[in-house]
């Protein structure tokens, strides 16, 4: 599903040049659950952003479902992204001014789904995440675990083929963390491909495969399954 070869990303600021990704190559198959690990600043988030089509690489090739997307422009990337990819962030990134329901509804609005259909799908996914009773609450009124469940709900509401999770449990205590990991595992079992960045060996064990990174390069790959 994802095939990356010789990918490079360099951040230039006035004083310094940071090589975030250095000729990185790897592959993720459909239905896989991959964990990415490595020390802080080694380029994990950068990788996820590029895979998630939020950012473009400087060099290299990126095949998404067999299509070269490395040179896609912003609009094409956005189009591909909103149909195929869901995101879960460490800091949840919910919009404070919108209710739980509205937050989850957002991707469907941008996909152009009609209101009655949206309502059905949002309610279905909120049910599944067991936060239906909180649908009219605002994010600030929820606990961290609940917020992350909303974020996961939002990531899956448009039934993406790929979910990217950047330290999804980083801000959660272990029981809430486990709950989220269980959700992701369930999604994976239903066929969704998942790439997850994590610092926790415990969480990484939920995955099929661990990619370890250092200074923008992959160092090892452990296959767990």
């Amino acid at each position: 599903m994802i095939k990356i070869a010789e990918l490079e990303k360099i951040y230039r600021t006035e004083e310094v040049e940071t090589v975030a990704l250095n000729k990185l190559s790897f592959e993720v198959k459909e239905g896989e659950f991959v964990a990415v690990m490595g020390p802080s600043g080694c380029g994990k988030s950068t990788l996820l952003n590029i895979v998630g089509l939020l950012d473009d690489p400087d060099k290299g090739s990126f095949l998404f479902n067999g299509i070269e997307v490395a040179d896609f422009n912003e609009r094409k990337r956005a189009d591909l992204r909103k149909r195929n990819i869901g995101f879960v962030f460490q800091s949840f990134n919910l919009i404070d001014e919108l209710t739980v329901f509205e937050n989850v509804e957002l991707p469907l609005i941008y996909l152009g789904v009609k209101a009655p259909e949206r309502k059905k799908r949002v309610e279905a996914v909120l049910d599944k995440m067991q936060i239906m009773h909180r649908r009219n609450h605002y994010p600030q009124q929820l606990s961290g675990g609940q917020q992350q469940r909303v974020a996961v709900a939002r990531a899956v509401v448009n039934k993406p083929k790929l979910i990217l999770a950047d330290e999804p449990t980083g801000n959660l205590d272990s029981s809430n963390g486990n709950e989220v990991m269980q959700l992701l595992t369930d999604l994976n079992e239903q066929g969704t491909t998942i790439i997850m960045v994590t610092h926790s060996e415990h969480d990484a064990r939920y995955s099929h495969r661990i990619i370890r990174m250092l200074d923008g390069q992959t160092v090892t790959e452990n296959i767990l399954v």
């Binding site: 939020l54 990134n93 919009i95 957002l106």
Partner: peptide, 9 residues
């Protein structure tokens, strides 16, 4: 930012 990630133009 969030809205853009969710696909806003």
């Amino acid at each position: 930012g969030i809205r853009k990630v969710m696909g806003a133009s």
